[in-house]
Design a protein around this nucleic acid. Structure first.
Lengths: 325, 325
DNA sequence: ATGAAAGCGCTAACAA
DNA sequence: TTGTTAGCGCTTTCAT
């Protein structure tokens, strides 16, 4: 093993000088620095990050945990978190909890002490567990708010309100709602936002139950929708909406001529399907960037945990149209 | 800070005993163990993984680096690597190189010493860089083979051969090929496989150049395809193929009645689009699982680097049909 | 079964 | 500017 002492010996300096040469080259004399780097190069030496972390009490890493790395909703978040981490010369570790609360805790605990901060996206953990993690390392939650933990919120009321408004303007009066998984933190939030907006505007909502945020449940949901007397559907997310659209089309029901479909998340799939999907955009990429900023440049603590909020908005595409008469 | 010494003091034992209580509870006496865990619980103590790593010379982590976490091609890989890692009680860190060689090296080097092994998927790094990383930590490459480094190969010849056979049987005689990015390791491999199979079967191939593996380049490619006198298209991957299909449809060209389209990768998108995409399946999930196995249970070194190879196969869906006459 | 002591590779006062 | 020294928190011989 080639450690700092071997390099020091070879360069004819002390270990501290080697350490300094790597950490703050400007404080070591030209000549010494040259010799250190020469020796390091010959030996193929790189400082050991684990030892460095132990000595400094910080790792230089940031972490982000998402429920499902395969869900396109989270990729902009990961990408932006990564970009912001890079800008600050931090490495980013991503972990996936597989939509599984138990695993999420394990993964979070395993990661917590190996990073200087953790972004928890759409966490399903019970409050106490989040706090336990937050006790080990600085945490910022995204799309989940709880007392005492810094958070970036992405409330759906605005975007969902716009969706309701949009459908009403198109003449729709009865809407089927495909809700999200019961365990998810956002499920009641979206449900509430919809019912508030619908009540205000006079749109009747038929709740069709809970669905996992994937394509196949959407396929299943489509038939339930057809059994109801509705002209529009709002799905918990784009994947479900896509399943609905495809199944409706298969059954010969035209979208949007006969039924309008609205998704939520505005993932990149929404723009690629035919008809392209009208969807509520959740600015999760920006949320990630903001979260890293909060982690890396913590605001002067005024006693309260930091809070940011980013609004959602409706993106209209081809899957919504005038209600049939 | 609550470290091993505080816990030891509190429990009235030595640090070694605390260490043992956590690492191999069976070797410490019932009574001592009880006291240690009690003390740990009261103090909220968890062994510090960084210190443990330094002392043991191993971290308990595994890493995987993919070119683009947002590319659905890689998500089965990540999921399977994760599953295998979990089974072995290792944490998994994922990193994304953003399709950028420079970043890939940085990310790999940053990760290398914080994990006990690294899976490098579809790496674009020059050989020397991969070897440099492999010198720091055990590495297994996926879909990239080089001397002296364990690898899981996913050669495309079989699947592409089946695609050519399929198209010939459907009466196609002239095929447009949309190649992958020039920097990618697989680009020439797929190109070669296609030309070999085409030459054997008597299919004429029109090379339309290099395309980034994303949707938009596929849209652009569609118009190039229409300018050629072909009845079928093979795209480097599903995303490109999807762009082609959508653009063709927009221009009023029916798929597959007028033009057949074949993708590669068989990502989950392939099954969701209309028409569903015929595609060459690359078993990248299994490849990931195998890679972890090679990392975690290394075969008795017989001098050669380990090698596995998983075959590709054509999945026929609705985007291919008989050639128009 | 337990403890003392040395050491993993590095950083950071402190002195020189 | 550089070296000496003392840790960072844990594991692991080696004694007892």
């Amino acid at each position: 093993m080639t450690n700092i002492r071997t390099v020091a010996a070879r360069a004819g300096v002390s270990p501290s000088t080697v350490s300094r040469a790597f950490a703050r080259p400007e404080v070591v004399a030209e000549e010494a620095r040259r010799r250190v780097f020469a020796a390091a190069a010959e030996l193929g030496y790189q400082p050991n990050p684990v030892a460095r972390s132990l000595a400094m009490g910080r790792t230089g890493n940031l972490g982000v945990i998402v429920p499902d790395i395969a869900n396109p909703f989270f990729t902009p978040l990961i990408k932006e978190v990564q970009r912001e981490a890079r800008r600050r010369e931090r490495s980013l570790f991503v972990a996936d909890s597989d939509e599984h609360v138990r695993q999420e805790l394990e993964v979070a605990l395993a990661m917590a002490r190996q990073v200087d901060g953790l972004v928890l996206a759409s966490s399903r953990l019970p409050e106490e567990d989040i706090r336990a993690v937050a006790a080990l390392t600085p945490v910022v939650t995204v799309s989940r708010v709880l007392d005492g933990v810094p958070a970036v919120a992405t409330p759906s009321d605005r975007g969902i309100g716009q969706a309701v408004e949009h459908l009403l303007a198109l003449g729709h009066r009865r809407l089927a709602y495909l809700g999200g998984p019961e365990e998810s933190y956002v499920t009641p939030e979206r449900h509430g936002a919809l019912h508030d907006a619908a009540a205000r505007g006079g749109l009747e909502v038929v709740d069709l139950g809970h669905f996992q945020p994937r394509y196949e449940p959407g396929v299943r949901a489509a038939d339930l929708v057809l059994a109801e007397d509705v002209t529009a559907v709002l799905a918990y997310n784009d994947q479900i909406a896509l399943g609905v659209v495809n199944r409706l089309t298969e059954r010969g029901v035209r979208v949007p001529e006969e039924i309008s479909v609205v998704g939520v998340d505005d993932t990149w799939i929404a723009g690629l399907t035919r008809p392209a999907l009208t969807s509520v955009r959740v600015p999760v990429g920006r949320a990630g960037a903001v979260a890293v900023r909060m982690l890396a440049d913590p605001a002067p603590g005024d006693g309260h945990a930091a809070r940011e909020s980013l609004a959602t908005e409706l993106i209209v595409r081809a899957s919504t149209g005038p209600a049939p008469r």
